[in-house]
């Protein structure tokens, strides 16, 4: 292996992957909170439209959506996105739809009595959401968001298909140049694993801080998984809602 491989291809690729993950995660979080809260709206039309959005983007294949944004959008709407932003858009819209289910689930899991107490104190609906419901719901969202973030990180590899020079793209180039597939793919698999590990550690830190902020001790995961939590985000949302209803019936 030459030093040039790292300096010229892999390190810039890692940087692109980190940027992609970060931008897509921020975009997806905005979508998730927007859609997730809108799905609890009193207006049926808002619930219907946001529900439609979620079903469409959960039903979509992220890779197909990426190709669509990359090839069809410029032709259909005369608007060419920079590949990087087409990728962020595709990932953010898709994972935002998944994330909105987490947000909705966590909001629904806050004890109804908390809402009633907030009504009894004459908070406006917006104040109820901001001051009472969300501060309790957000710590419960972090573990499933962690899973989703790892899924998002893995999905960033798809962008290599639309010529964004991420880690996977760098590996392709390197393979073509050197012909050595084993080494390069082994290296980048480890790179992804390390990134996933770091992300998970960061999210754990966030979870601990968030839980401390509401007077709860952080939950120790006893089974000792090496990196991530075990269940799919959907199941974990349900699981955490069970925990809330069982434990926090204040």
């Amino acid at each position: 292996m030459t030093a040039g491989l790292w300096e010229n291809w892999l390190l810039p690729g890692v940087w692109i992957t980190i940027q992609l993950t970060l931008y897509s995660a921020v975009f997806a979080a905005v979508v998730a909170f927007g859609i997730g809260m809108a799905r609890t709206s009193r207006l049926w039309i808002v619930r219907f439209l946001t529900g439609f959005y979620v079903e469409v983007f959960r039903g979509t294949s992220a890779l197909v959506l990426m190709f669509w944004l990359f090839f069809v959008m410029p032709l259909a709407f005369q608007y060419q996105l920079v590949p990087m932003w087409a990728a962020v858009l595709a990932l953010g819209l898709t994972y935002g739809a998944y994330g909105s289910e987490i947000v909705r689930g966590a909001i629904a899991a806050v004890a109804p009595a908390q809402r009633e107490a907030a009504i009894a104190l004459s908070f406006t609906p917006a104040q109820r959401m901001r001051r009472v419901i969300l501060p309790q719901a957000i710590p419960e969202m972090i573990p499933p968001f962690n899973n989703l973030l790892i899924e998002l990180l893995k999905a960033t590899a798809l962008v290599s298909a639309v010529s964004v020079a991420d880690i996977t793209f760098a590996a392709q180039l390197s393979r073509l140049a050197t012909g050595d597939s084993l080494e390069i793919y082994a290296i980048i698999l480890v790179l992804y694993f390390v990134l996933a590990f770091v992300l998970t550690r960061l999210m754990r830190l966030l979870e601990r801080r968030a839980k401390a902020g509401i007077g709860q001790a952080p939950v120790k995961s006893g089974k000792g998984p090496l990196v991530t939590r075990k269940l799919s985000s959907r199941q974990e949302t349900e699981q955490s809602s069970n925990i809330i209803t069982a434990g926090g019936a204040q």
Partner: peptide, 17 residues
């Protein structure tokens, strides 16, 4: 744990190449 935390696409390339 390793397989779950790395991209399917890269695993696909790994097997294919």
């Amino acid at each position: 744990e390793f397989i779950r935390n790395t991209p399917l696409l890269v695993q696909l390339f790994f097997f294919y190449y």
